[in-house]
Design a protein around this nucleic acid. Structure first.
Lengths: 209, 209
DNA sequence: ACCTGAACACCGTTCAAGT
DNA sequence: ACCTGAACACCGTTCAAGT
């Protein structure tokens, strides 16, 4: 049945994620991953089908690192909060990988496990079928959307930019035209990402209750 | 003061978006855009700083096409729905461009206009400062998150895949381990994206009321 | 000021050859 | 079965030269 493969899938995952964390997305290529593993570019093709698969490898590695306590099963709201927050934290723990997580499909057991856990907690709100589906989509969207907003939203901090630079940039806009945006720029500067995320999630959970 | 530029920014935007719509993200490069405009690759550098700017061009083109009716100013909920739905539709109108919209920062007037309009409607719920910021972030996150889920979530339809293939794939999973996921797979197949999005948004708006 | 071709260092991948 | 080097068609971008 052939000799064992030179590298395990987990080894590839770890090496690919390490590269992205250290050098950014542009630092990951067939060639750099091969070099990292001390082999030639073509060897990677023994483990993935193509370049796109390399990105999926990174996504799986990040999602696999999401960890939440065993749901207590008392208050479904509390359990949804736990799982959603764990997912949000896992994504944010690897900022360079966020673009991939937002855009690459993964069907790893870890990805499915998060979905199932979330669905299970949400089902205890008394929902099933279409209504459970909508609740699941809404919570998932909120988690990914909050991670996305920090990366690319109008109030996002540019790479290497100071937080105050964002406020200055917003405040420099025409005052009449962007009144509200200028108004919240100050609040955005004083804000804490996790507190904001949890407050946003609470709004949705209020709607779900 | 120099002669007029060979191409306007809008011309570049339109050509870049047309390329992405027709050939996918991989179809857009400095060279293909130049060819589309009937010139050489280096000419593009007279209009953008680098390749990353090309992506921003596409994002701006998509957001600029978002269009919503003048807010009626009666029911803030209705106005938030209008603006959020317009944004969601604009994003979905260019499926190939979605990865860019999720990951590239744009500061075009069009992008700021959506934010300001949304903030204005949300402020009429009686919020300001930190609370307005959280409401804004939550609604924005939901919009982008719903667009994202269709692209890369566990229930997303693969390129060229039939909708039923997703259900079959989910149903083939271990029944014990993924009980809820299998349960909602059927609902997902019968669902309509816009109805789902609006139902999800309604949940959040309920929480905001 | 703006335009542009040649050249360079990268990239993913095909192919053919190794064990 | 698995591994891998050479070669090819792409890519973004630097540089130098044009108007």
């Amino acid at each position: 049945m052939g000799r064992p493969r030179k590298f395990s899938r987990e080894q590839l995952q770890d090496a690919a994620l390490a590269l992205v964390d250290a050098r950014g997305l542009a630092g990951l290529s067939m060639r750099t991953l091969a070099a990292e593993l001390g082999t030639g570019p073509m060897t990677i093709y023994n483990h993935v089908a193509n370049r796109a698969d390399l990105d999926v490898l990174v996504v799986e590695a990040v999602v696999a690192r999401a960890d939440w306590p065993q749901p207590r099963g008392v208050d479904w709201r509390e359990d949804v909060q736990c799982i959603a927050t764990a997912m949000w934290r896992a994504v944010r723990a690897h900022p360079h990988a966020i673009p991939l997580i937002l855009t690459r499909r993964s069907r790893s057991p870890a990805a499915l496990a998060v979905a199932e856990a979330l669905l299970d907690a949400l089902s205890r709100s008394g929902r099933s079928g279409q209504r459970l589906l909508v609740a699941f989509r809404a919570v998932s969207a909120l988690v990914m959307g909050f991670a996305q907003a920090e990366l690319a939203g109008p109030l996002a901090v540019e790479a290497g930019e100071a937080a105050e630079a964002v406020i200055r940039r917003i405040r420099a806009l025409p005052r009449q035209r962007y009144r509200r945006l200028i108004e919240i720029a100050g609040a955005a500067a004083r804000s804490n990402p996790e507190r904001e995320f949890r407050a946003g999630l609470d709004l949705l959970l209020d709607g779900l209750a």
